[in-house]
Design a protein around this nucleic acid. Structure first.
Length: 269
DNA sequence: ATGCCCCATTAAATGGGA
């Protein structure tokens, strides 16, 4: 069974349904994980997604902010939407698919951006970001089945490697690339020995971005990006991943999101 | 300054993104 997964911070799913449909038609992933849907659950565009063959959909949304959704060609055997930091916001949803190698759970995360000032003492948003990452670590540490097959995708809002940002030196004190955030993310990654599937295929020496600001006059020419969107897998799945790609072209589509989709393919036997 | 754009909510500003 082949499994291709795309993660995409869509920055309003209703506004961008034309390019969501374009992505599904051009790449035909088995599973699409969206973040920042900014869509109340009652207004989620189920019909056009089902029409394209994505009959199995789980959403965790709220009006105006945040919101995640996972759409699948394969039946969803189980789902879970977890609340973090007792905020009542919508930043996670998970689905479980059955495969020849047993159940596979796909977590879809939207980690808080963290505001401007990288100091949790004075910036509540940054404190929230660090607390969110700590809760992820605690949750995965408490996982009973350490061999469980899981994929974790999403906008983690952290660019951990020097080659994940356009200038390591200039971004050292900029939220998304500070040492304290990266330490917190490293602890999440260590919790279940998650592997960075994208960097498994694309060496750390190679510069790689998934996000380019709207504010640059010409995002492509400026190329001041960051790798904020990630695909991880637990050790039992790492060897089944057959390839990854940042779909940078989508950043240049009509009325784009500021994030590019990230694709990973697995062969589950 | 990555840097003045883009979104949602709501009705011309404001908050948030990262």
């Amino acid at each position: 069974m082949k499994l291709s997964v795309i993660t995409w911070n869509i920055n309003s799913v209703r506004l961008r349904m034309p390019i969501v449909e374009q992505l599904l038609e051009e790449y035909s992933p088995d599973v699409l994980c969206l973040q920042e849907t900014k869509c109340p659950n009652g207004q989620f565009p189920f019909a056009p997604l089902r029409k394209l063959g994505y009959e199995h959909i789980v959403i965790n949304g709220q009006p105006g902010y945040h919101g995640v959704a996972t759409v699948s060609r394969y039946p969803i055997e189980a789902e879970e939407a977890r609340e973090f930091c007792k905020k009542g916001d919508t930043r996670h949803v998970a689905i479980t698919l059955s495969s020849p190698s047993g159940p596979v759970t796909i977590h879809n995360f939207y980690v808080p951006a963290g505001g401007d000032e990288p100091n949790p003492e004075v910036n509540e948003k940054f404190a929230h970001k660090l607390a969110f990452l700590n809760e992820m670590t605690e949750w995965f540490n408490a996982e009973k089945n350490q061999d469980r097959k899981m994929i974790l995708v999403g906008d983690l809002n952290i660019a951990p490697l020097e080659t994940d940002v356009w200038s390591h030196k200039k971004l050292l004190k900029v939220v998304s690339h500070t040492a304290v955030e990266i330490e917190h993310l490293d602890r999440v990654q260590a919790s279940l020995d998650w592997s960075d599937v994208v960097r498994h295929h694309i060496p750390a020496e190679e510069t790689l971005f998934t996000w380019w600001s709207y504010r640059a006059r010409d995002w492509k020419a400026a190329d001041k990006g960051r790798r904020l969107d990630h695909i991880w897998a637990t050790p039992g799945l790492t060897g089944t991943s057959t390839g990854v790609e940042v779909l940078k072209g989508a950043r240049g589509w009509e009325r784009p999101s500021d994030h590019a989709p990230v694709l990973a393919k697995f062969d589950l036997g």
